[in-house]
């Protein structure tokens, strides 16, 4: 019913078929789902992509079976502090990183499997008043945390067995860092967004803060998802959670901004806005970016997918019969995961 109302207002007609249903899994534990992700998992010489689901008190690993079925293979119980999110770690295997806390992240743990001991385990990586944490390539984790006096920005090198091998402190800006993104193709370059609407650029090897620039948008507190450098310009994909429509800031979901790191000047390049919904305006709640596509959960309970380089909404997944979508994440190979609070996760090919 929702799809019927939604598709006629999409700019180029109905495009729900751009999302092809692949399979579904459902956690029947009855606990409220807080996040979903995927992880490469190697067992018995076979490496495969598995789904990870998180509730407040547990994190579960799901293995693909024949005929698009899924089986829960293990559950880590984390009863003391609630799980807030799963932190994806690119190019790692057999490791799941989770953030735990009450309103903010209080600690980060690695969940893994020890083949020597033939047992699942978890280990503490970091504690503190953590504002943002993002997994980087080559088993690195960057985080920002605050004490009363100062902010600490730190990169931890994780070991294969789930410990921390080494760390590097980055020079912290005064403003709180809310998100990080590696600059693709530049191993030592990292960007971050701040709560005061800035883009920060670091040298990961030296820890130097190279540049702090205005994010080039009046929407408050953007989050960075991807960054790449081309022809001397730094392109950053930003999202605007809970952005309200106003004269100064349109109803944006994602936004590609070009920065000249030499001058600090910026210009918005492509804007991706939520399609109008059947009940009026829809606003971006949360989302994820993979390659040149962005996916987001909107206030209507639908998931929308955009071509970020054209600013075009390419598909809309209406709320399911059992409820609204609450989470959306990309997995390798243009597979979209959409999760509901009741533990249902749908996998779609885009």
């Amino acid at each position: 019913d929702a799809a019927e109302h939604l598709t006629p207002v999409l700019p180029d007609g109905p495009r729900e078929e751009n999302l092809q249903f692949v399979s579904e899994l459902k956690d029947s534990s009855g606990s409220c789902a807080v996040d979903v992700s995927t992880v490469w998992w190697e067992a018995d010489g076979c490496r495969e992509l598995r789904v990870v689901t998180a509730s407040e008190s547990s994190v579960s690993l799901w293995q693909p079976l024949a005929h698009n079925h899924w089986a829960k293979t293990y559950t880590w119980q984390l009863a003391e502090i609630p799980v807030i999110q799963i932190i994806p770690l690119p190019d790692t295997c057999n490791l799941v990183c989770v953030a735990l806390g009450e309103l903010e992240i209080g600690e980060i743990r690695l969940l893994g499997y020890s083949s020597e001991a033939d047992s699942f385990k978890h280990s503490l990586v970091k504690t503190g008043n953590i504002k943002a944490a993002v997994g980087l390539k080559e088993q690195r984790l960057v985080s920002s945390s605050r004490t009363l006096q100062e902010q600490q920005v730190e990169v931890v090198l994780l070991s294969e067995t789930g410990g921390s091998k080494d760390w590097q402190t980055l020079m912290a800006p005064e403003e709180t860092v809310t998100a990080f993104a590696e600059v693709e193709g530049m191993r030592e370059a990292l960007v971050g967004t701040t709560a005061a609407n800035s883009i920060v650029v670091w040298n990961l090897q030296t820890g130097q803060l190279l540049r702090q620039m205005h994010a080039g948008c009046s929407c408050p507190a953007p989050l960075c998802h991807r960054a790449f450098s081309d022809s001397g310009l730094l392109f950053v994909v930003l999202s605007h959670p809970h952005a309200k429509e106003s004269e100064s800031c349109g109803n944006l979901a994602f936004h590609v901004v070009a920065f000249n790191p030499r001058t600090g000047r910026s210009r918005g390049v492509v804007f991706s806005s939520p399609p109008p919904g059947w009940g009026g305006r829809q606003v971006y709640l949360e989302g994820d970016v993979w390659d040149t596509v962005g996916a987001a959960v909107l206030t209507s309970g639908a998931v929308a997918v955009w071509d970020l380089l054209r600013g075009r909404c390419g598909a809309v997944l209406p709320p399911g019969p059992s409820g609204h979508w609450a989470l959306t994440r990309w997995a390798a190979g243009a597979v979209l995961l959409a999760g509901q609070r009741d533990g249902t996760v749908g996998l779609y090919r885009y």
Binding site: M171, V201, G232, L233, A258, F259, N260, R262, R265, R267
Partner: peptide, 23 residues
């Protein structure tokens, strides 16, 4: 984006900013 919008562009911006930034 044209160069006039964003100012002079350098392909080596990362190395240049690293050399100029406080250690």
């Amino acid at each position: 984006c044209s160069e006039s919008d964003l100012g002079p562009i350098s392909l080596n911006w990362f190395e240049e900013l690293t050399a100029e930034a406080p250690p």
